[in-house]
Structure formats: structure tokens, C-alpha cells
């Protein structure tokens, strides 16, 4: 059952008023304008045992993504495709409001929005993941680990997922006469085939203002949030309104305008980090 959040962190009214009076001047408490994301740091290959990994810092928010690739069976209706699965864990060390236990509705929503945005556009080439049609395919697990929560987990998670996938290596395997498949963990067949790169842009609606990349304090005072996923061609490949308030049609137009600009910043950071890696 989904419930109105009843244990939300308290943000003093004075702080909220300060935030909004700054927005009025086009400024924010951390020296940003309303439309620029925080400083982005992307480091790939941080977990050697994973086939792909990335640590993303978006301001003080930190998300670690690990890609594991294993042999499994395809879904019955897609015998000629591998499988992509995204999971998110809000581990309790990341925030005083995270409790141990199975993923809550926020973690499930995050994983599902990231999953859909990658899946619908065909970001990972699933057809290249078939070992034996209808029987054996590669299963790509993307596990998102939020390790420090200072707002905007969607954008940090998508950057981490994308950086981990783009640097992931497909393991090699040996097929025995019995049909058994042994994965050779130390040998790779080459990079995982990626067809599209996706980023999400999260904006928060605070009163009359739409701001990009909210911090945790800003998310707490925000009325609602909109997550827009876009690919490298500028197409919308996913969207989710999340939060307690509604949007007017005009506000949605505004969200799209603002998201386009911020998406460019995310793509630039991602491509620079991947180019550095070679």
C-alpha cells in the first residue's frame, strides 16, 4: 500500500522562504542558477569483479552502479533476445531516512523508471546477447546502489547505469558437447553492445519555479518532481511525474524546455568521462 510520506525530514519554514526568495532572483543556496545541475564526477571500472561499474557523484549524492552478466534462459515471448534487469537498493548507510529491508516504493519506482527508459529505446542491444536461440542468453543485471543521498537519485542513477553499461565487457564462454556452457570470467568477447545513450533530467516544482537537479533539501520543500528521460537524438524515451502535486500544461512545456538544456550537460559529462577512460 502506498502512503502519504509521514516521516519526512523537517525543513524549517525560514529555510524554505530563503530558497524561494533566492529562486526569485534566479539563484540557489549552492551558488547555482535554476537550470544547471551540480558538479558531476563519473569514475568507471571501480569494481573489478563486475563486468561494468561506475561511481557517480552528483554534488553530494553518490550512486554506485554494477553490471553483472550471467547466462540464463530468455523470456518465452522473446527467444531471440537477452535480458536486461535493473534493481535499486537504498542501503541504510546512505541516509538517516533509509531503513534496512526489501526495496520500498521509492526504490522500486527508481529502478522501474531507469529500466523502462533503457529498455523502450533499446539502449542495450539485446539481440546480440543470444547464445542459443530460445535456450541460452546473457542476462544483464544493473544494480544501483545509492550510497549517499543528497537528492536527485534518478539522474545520478541513470548516469551511473549508463557509464557502467557503456564500459561493460561481455564475458567469453566455452560450449561443451553436452550443451553445457561454462562462462570464462577472465576472458572477454569484447564490449557489451550499446545502441543508445540515455540520461534522465529531474526537475522539481517549488511554488511557481521549476528547478533542475534538486538537492535533498529542495526535494523536501518541492511540491512535485518530473523525471524526463532523453536519448542522444533528443527523443523522449521515458517520463515519470513523481510527487504530491499536479502540473499545468504550461508547466509541462516549461519542464521540457529546461530538461533539454540540462540533458546536454549530462551527456557532455558522460562522454568526457568515457573518453578519458579510452
Amino acid at each position: 500500500m502506498s502512503m502519504t510520506p509521514f516521516r519526512v525530514p523537517v525543513v524549517p519554514t525560514l529555510k524554505k522562504e530563503t530558497f524561494i526568495s533566492l529562486y526569485r532572483k534566479g539563484m540557489r543556496i549552492d551558488d547555482r542558477d535554476l537550470f544547471t545541475p551540480r558538479k558531476i564526477e563519473i569514475e568507471t571500472g571501480v569494481i573489478e569483479k563486475a563486468e561494468g561499474s561506475a561511481l557517480v557523484k552528483l554534488g553530494n549524492t553518490k550512486v554506485l552502479a554494477g553490471v553483472k552478466i550471467e547466462v540464463g534462459t530468455p523470456f518465452k515471448d522473446t527467444p531471440n533476445q537477452g535480458v536486461l534487469t535493473v534493481h535499486a537498493e537504498f542501503v541504510p548507510l546512505a541516509s538517516p531516512v533509509f531503513e534496512p529491508g526489501p526495496p520500498d516504493e521509492n526504490a522500486i519506482e527508481l529502478a522501474r523508471v531507469i529500466d523502462r527508459s533503457l529498455r523502450e529505446v533499446g539502449a542495450v542491444d539485446l539481440e546480440s546477447l543470444v547464445i542459443r536461440e530460445g535456450e541460452k542468453v546473457w542476462i544483464v543485471w544493473v544494480d544501483l546502489y545509492v550510497i549517499d543521498h543528497d537528492g536527485n537519485l534518478f539522474d545520478a542513477s541513470m548516469l551511473a547505469a549508463m557509464a557502467a553499461l557503456r564500459t561493460a565487457k561481455l564475458p567469453d564462454y566455452e560450449e561443451y558437447e553436452t550443451g553445457e556452457i561454462e562462462v570464462l570470467k577472465d576472458k572477454s568477447q569484447g564490449p557489451l553492445k550499446i545502441n543508445h545513450t540515455v540520461v534522465t533530467v529531474t526537475t522539481a516544482k517549488v511554488g511557481d519555479y521549476i528547478i533542475v537537479d534538486p538537492t535533498l533539501d529542495e526535494e523536501t520543500i518541492a511540491d512535485s518532481r518530473m523525471v524526463v528521460a532523453v536519448d542522444e537524438q533528443g527523443r523522449i524515451v521515458g517520463l515519470q511525474k513523481t510527487g504530491e502535486a499536479g502540473y499545468t500544461r504550461e508547466e509541462i512545456q516549461k519542464v521540457f524546455n529546461i530538461s533539454q538544456g540540462a540533458a546536454k550537460v549530462y551527456f557532455k559529462s558522460l562522454e568526457e568521462a568515457l573518453a578519458r577512460k579510452g
Partner: peptide, 15 residues
């Protein structure tokens, strides 16, 4: 009251 209160997109669309 002129408010959109549920909004999701699953798939690929232009703006």
C-alpha cells in the same frame, strides 16, 4: 482546476 496529476511515458516519442 487545470492540473495534470498523473503523467508517465513508457516508450519513445518526440516532444
Amino acid at each position: 482546476i487545470g492540473l495534470i496529476t498523473l503523467f508517465q511515458i513508457n516508450g519513445v516519442m518526440t516532444r
